[in-house]
């Protein structure tokens, strides 16, 4: 009974609720990836199903908790990070997952998002980035590219988008990964890494909105072009990509540069090795900010650095103070300090 965690299958994480996303929505693939990852996470971390809590805000992605057969909390718009923080601090033994979108996390919930990251609370944040507001039917989001034409920007947006990775690392994020909805295998692997990381893990999932922003990621999701336009990073491995594995990243001055191995005097030895564990965020930031067509889009775990977590610090401080405390109960407290008798 206690070792349930050894034997879960994806089926165990499916709830009885009917999934209501549009047919063809990228969210379906993400849900499968999570349901595929959770048995693996359970096995590795020895978590029974009741230890999982999925917390969300508002938006299409935020329906997610209803579809996972765990504890779940569908919050209010933008506040998922705050709710998840409360859950984790209240009971640090729980495995807390936050499901959020580009509007929920980066617009209305931007404040909570950056502060959760700054505190390094041990929550796994899955950020579904479709560059559009879906549930309200097609307005631009904080990640819509400059000039994007939407219902509320009929002449194109005039504002610069956030790059989630840059924001996360700027807020002192210790774990940032990126994946693509259609790549269920990669997404699932990254989920396991995110779960194993102690601290805030942000996984940006490039997700297609089939109705309001269809094809936003076609340039990297189609099979023909994907290998030449994305680089999947693995810690300790060379940063090579391309159909023929002949392209790579080198450092040129203070910037990254794409080179072809065997051309221009570049050999495999010149290609950078990915060090996700490096506390210095410099290269991670450059990797996270790479944009097509100058660069491939970086997928995989870009940054994975150990540091103390908020929930551990809270618990440790409480235990430390309690250890030598003179006040052990409310009666002690009420009778502490200056008191006097009336006889």
């Amino acid at each position: 009974m206690e070792e349930q965690y050894l034997n879960y299958t994806p089926q165990d994480f499916k709830s009885d609720q009917e999934v209501r996303w549009c047919p063809g929505c990228g969210d379906h693939a993400i849900l499968s990836a999570v349901q595929k990852a959770l048995p693996e996470v359970s096995k590795e971390l020895k978590y029974n199903i009741e230890r999982y809590v999925f917390v969300s805000g508002i938006g299409c992605s935020s329906r997610f908790p209803y579809y996972v057969n765990t504890y779940g909390f569908h919050g209010i718009h933008g506040r998922a990070s705050a709710i998840a923080t409360g859950v984790k601090v209240a009971n640090p033994t729980l495995s807390v997952w936050q499901i959020t979108g580009d509007g929920d996390a980066l617009a209305i919930g931007g404040n909570h998002f950056i502060h959760a990251i700054r505190r390094n609370i041990d929550v796994n944040i899955l950020l579904f980035n479709n560059q559009i507001y879906g549930l309200t039917k097609g307005q631009y989001s904080p990640t819509s590219p400059l000039g994007k034409i939407t219902k509320t920007s009929p002449f194109g947006t005039v504002e610069h988008p956030f790059r989630p990775g840059e924001l996360v690392i700027g807020a002192q994020g210790k774990f940032f990964a990126r994946t693509l909805d259609v790549d269920v295998k990669l997404t699932s692997e990254i989920m396991v890494e995110a779960a194993k990381h102690d601290g805030t893990s942000v996984v940006e999932i490039l997700q297609n909105c089939v109705i309001f922003n269809d094809g936003a990621y076609d340039f990297i999701s189609s099979k023909e072009t994907r290998d030449d336009r994305v680089i999947v990073l693995h810690h300790g491995e060379k940063m090579v990509f391309g159909k023929n594995r002949d392209k790579g990243l080198v450092l040129s001055g203070l910037s990254l540069k794409v080179v072809t191995i065997g051309q221009g005097g570049f050999t495999m030895d010149d290609i950078l090795v990915h060090d996700a564990y490096n506390p210095n965020p410099g290269v991670h930031m450059m990797l996270a900010n790479m944009e097509f067509p100058e660069y491939p889009i970086a997928l995989g775990v870009i940054r994975n650095v150990k540091d103390s977590t908020y929930d551990d610090n809270v618990r440790d401080q409480v235990l430390e103070v309690m250890k030598d405390a003179k006040i052990k109960c409310v009666d002690d407290l009420l009778n502490s300090g200056e008191t006097w008798e009336v006889k």
Binding site: T85, G86, V87, V89, A90, H112, V314, V318, M322, A325
Partner: peptide, 26 residues
């Protein structure tokens, strides 16, 4: 903290109550 009280100075009023709601759920 001697009595095990956990306090979280939140980033704003909304986070104050939302962390509390999360803690209550847990």
């Amino acid at each position: 903290k001697d009595l095990g009280v956990k306090t979280l100075q939140a980033e704003d009023e909304i986070a104050g109550i939302c962390t509390a709601i999360g803690a209550s759920f847990a």
